[in-house]
Amino acid sequence: MFHHGVRSHTDLSAAIYLYRPGDGGLDRVAILLANHMARRGMAVELWMAHLDGVSAHLIDPRVPVRRVAALGGNRRMSMIGQFPALAAMVRRHRPDILYSAGNQSNMLVALACVGTATRSVARISNPILRPGMGDLASWTRLKRFRAINRISDLTIVMGEYDRALLSRSGAVRLLPRPTVTPVMERVRRQRRPRDADAPVQMLMVGRLVEQKDHATALEALARLSHVDWRLTIAGDGPLRAALAAQANALGIADRVILAGYVADPERLAELMGQADLLLQPSRWEGLCATLIEALACGAGVVATDSTPNIRPVLAAAGQHPPVPIGDSAALARAIERTLASPAPVPLMEAAIRDHGAARALDAYVAAFAELIPSPTPVMLPSPALP
């Protein structure tokens, strides 16, 4: 249980709500934040609906974990049903901050804090407006996000585009994504010059689902039969069999390795350190953690225009501009051009410096602290005076 008293802003208490420790970027950020605060000696807990998941092993043993009672059914309905339990936990444990790991839980977290001294912090983990959305769908989605922002004490966004969309509906902070770890920095330093006679090593990282659009990347690579390339796909999901069948139909199955989900962060960093190029063909993204991670490990990146938030990062890192979503021909051309003129590694390093995990997580904690009123000093009478 959290205890309050006179304290400095560095020892605030926080509960981090995460539905399940899964394989997504928002899950890793939530766990990184909890671990970081615990290592700084702060009072922090993880509150989760489900304690099992592929990234559960990443939780620092110093972080207490509490289960939020959840009903059955799909994720969205389960979250709605959690409101009474989460609201009761806020009132019982009274954390200074209740942080939402991502889009789906932002409303739940904000409502659970209403009427309490606990400050709710939302985080935009996927784009507010997705590329290709119709006018009505965009209007409806934007209204919903702005309504959530109004009842949240703070919303953290990962790009200027999202900040502009929410700027008139409540408190918004643009903070770097806590992504680049010391392991990635070590991998970059140990990177060897590319062997011109070796096959070009391509990498894709992400769940095998429609959003990540691995299919377009396979079509693009099939157009590059004159290039000696190999592709590793790190990730798992419902489209695994379909992607394997597609690679076989395109005649490139012998060049593609479906490596499955890589749970070990060090192993994933090693894969990025061995890659010449990361392919990020997503249909929509919030910022693309894997894009930043790959640049941190010294790999080039070719990405689709899945969010305006990635454009400044790619430009600063000297990468090819993002290509249209679902355009395999444009993706193939971008791959060829990037291989022909790779950006210098120091340029890539400079572009992602602000995304260093410790530095970015400290910015999160500082933003939390600004929400908590400083204790009011009490004037005590001097014992020397009557």
Rank of each mutant, 00 (worst) to 15 (best):
H3N: 12
H3K: 14
G5A: 04
V6K: 13
R7T: 14
L12A: 05
A14P: 08
P21F: 02
P21W: 05
R28Y: 11
A34C: 03
N35Y: 11
R39C: 13
G41W: 08
E45T: 03
E45F: 08
H50K: 14
S55P: 08
A56N: 13
H57G: 04
D60I: 09
P61Q: 13
P64F: 05
R67H: 13
A70K: 07
R76D: 15
A85V: 06
A88M: 09
V90K: 00
V90M: 05
H93T: 14
P95L: 11
G102S: 02
N103G: 04
N106Y: 01
V121H: 09
I128F: 00
R141K: 10
K143I: 12
R150G: 10
D162F: 00
R168A: 13
A171V: 04
R173V: 08
L174P: 05
R177I: 12
V180P: 00
P182W: 13
M184Q: 09
M184E: 11
V187Q: 04
R189W: 08
D197H: 15
A198M: 02
V205C: 03
H214D: 00
A222L: 07
R223G: 03
L231V: 07
D236F: 06
D236Y: 00
R240P: 01
A245E: 15
L250G: 01
A253G: 09
D254R: 14
R255W: 09
R255D: 01
V256R: 06
E266I: 12
R267F: 11
L268M: 08
E270L: 12
G273F: 03
D276S: 07
D276G: 04
P281L: 00
R283A: 07
E285M: 02
T290G: 09
L291T: 02
L291P: 00
E293N: 04
L314A: 02
A317N: 01
A317R: 00
Q319G: 06
P321R: 09
V323D: 02
S328I: 00
A329V: 10
A329K: 13
L331I: 04
L331G: 01
R333G: 11
A334Y: 00
I335M: 04
R337Q: 14
A340K: 02
L347V: 15
I352F: 04
A357Q: 02
L361D: 06
D362L: 10
S382G: 10
S382I: 12
P383D: 01
